[in-house]
């Protein structure tokens, strides 16, 4: 039977490559009993819509986003707590462990099975006029964020003036000077050419985001154990590839962007961690056990 694997990435993106790999591994592993139709570039809808489609059985699998997924399982949003992970491998260790399992159990109650976590990179700040190596540099900065409460909380704690805006409207809004800057993973910044408008890139690494790979529960429950194992194996193997590509891309992008006129600086991580401690208090009030578990798992 045909399995639709849908995602929002365009050719060249690590997620795109990994989805093709997933299709290959899964088809091989099931001995041709299943063929995979990969639908890239949001042709099956945006992240939120792909999740609806998966749980309604319209598509079978989606490589999705942390933001959309946290609309269904709010706990997933906690992975974006400021400066939670020292680096990417630290994040992976947590996601592949007990925390990942717990999130999967929550998701299953909403009709979705989490097959595994790929990467979406760490977010950094870009500014039109200056670097923001110290939290004080952010004071009063008009910064665009996605409509995501965690991100807004982080920048309010830092004394900036965050305002959410649709991604599609961002380049125009930055050009008009309505915002002083924005924050995104380097791959997004590069693909939308945002470094041409906001050339001052500060490696803040303030927020990690995963790419949950999710299957519809109806489809998943109807599979035999061997096929389920194939889906998990495909997700893990393609995920290893995606994570290494993602790391590489981040490293390749810096010189590329510098050659195109961007200027990089590294943020004072300890100062930032101190300045965003209040965000932990806010979320610990709502999810006391999970926040504690996350901090411990991440080695804080």
């Amino acid at each position: 039977t045909e399995v639709i694997l849908a995602h929002g990435a365009n050719p060249g993106n690590p997620r795109y490559v990994a989805a093709e790999k997933w299709a290959e591994i899964f088809a091989d592993c099931t001995g041709g009993a299943h063929s995979v139709n990969v639908a890239p570039s949001s042709t099956m809808g945006d992240d939120t819509e792909m999740l609806t489609s998966a749980s309604a059985g319209v598509i079978q699998v989606t490589a999705n986003s942390q933001g959309a997924m946290s609309q269904i399982v709010p706990e997933i949003g906690l992975l974006g707590l400021p400066f939670l992970f020292a680096d990417l491998p630290a994040a992976w260790a947590v996601l592949d462990g007990e925390v990942g399992e717990m999130l999967d159990q929550r998701a299953q109650r909403a009709g979705l099975k989490i097959l595994g976590f790929w990467d979406n990179g760490i977010r950094n700040v870009t500014h039109t006029a200056k670097h923001v190596t110290d939290p004080a540099d952010l004071r009063g900065m008009k910064i665009r964020t996605p409509p995501d409460q965690m991100t807004i909380d982080i920048f309010e704690a830092l004394g900036a003036a965050p305002a959410p805006l649709a991604w599609s409207e961002l380049p125009t809004a930055l050009q008009s000077g309505v915002f002083d800057g924005q924050e995104n993973p380097l791959t997004n910044i590069y693909s939308a050419k945002l470094h041409e408008i906001t050339p001052y890139v500060t490696i803040t690494g303030h927020k990690y985001e995963a790419t949950p790979v999710v299957a519809g529960m109806i489809w998943w429950a109807g599979l035999d154990a061997a096929t389920q194992a194939c889906a998990l194996q495909a997700t893990a193997e393609a995920g290893a590839l995606q994570r290494s590509l993602s790391l590489e891309a981040d490293e390749d992008l810096r010189p590329k962007m510098e050659a195109e006129g961007a200027s990089f600086a590294i943020a004072d991580r300890d100062a930032y961690i101190a300045a965003t401690a209040s965000v932990y208090d806010k979320y610990a009030a709502r999810f006391p056990e999970l926040v504690a578990a996350l901090k411990q798992a991440a080695g804080q």
Partner: peptide, 14 residues
């Protein structure tokens, strides 16, 4: 109907 059921699990973030 399946879509309506699925959407009852999703909450707009802000």
């Amino acid at each position: 109907q399946p879509i309506l059921r699925a959407s009852s699990f999703q909450t707009l973030s802000t």
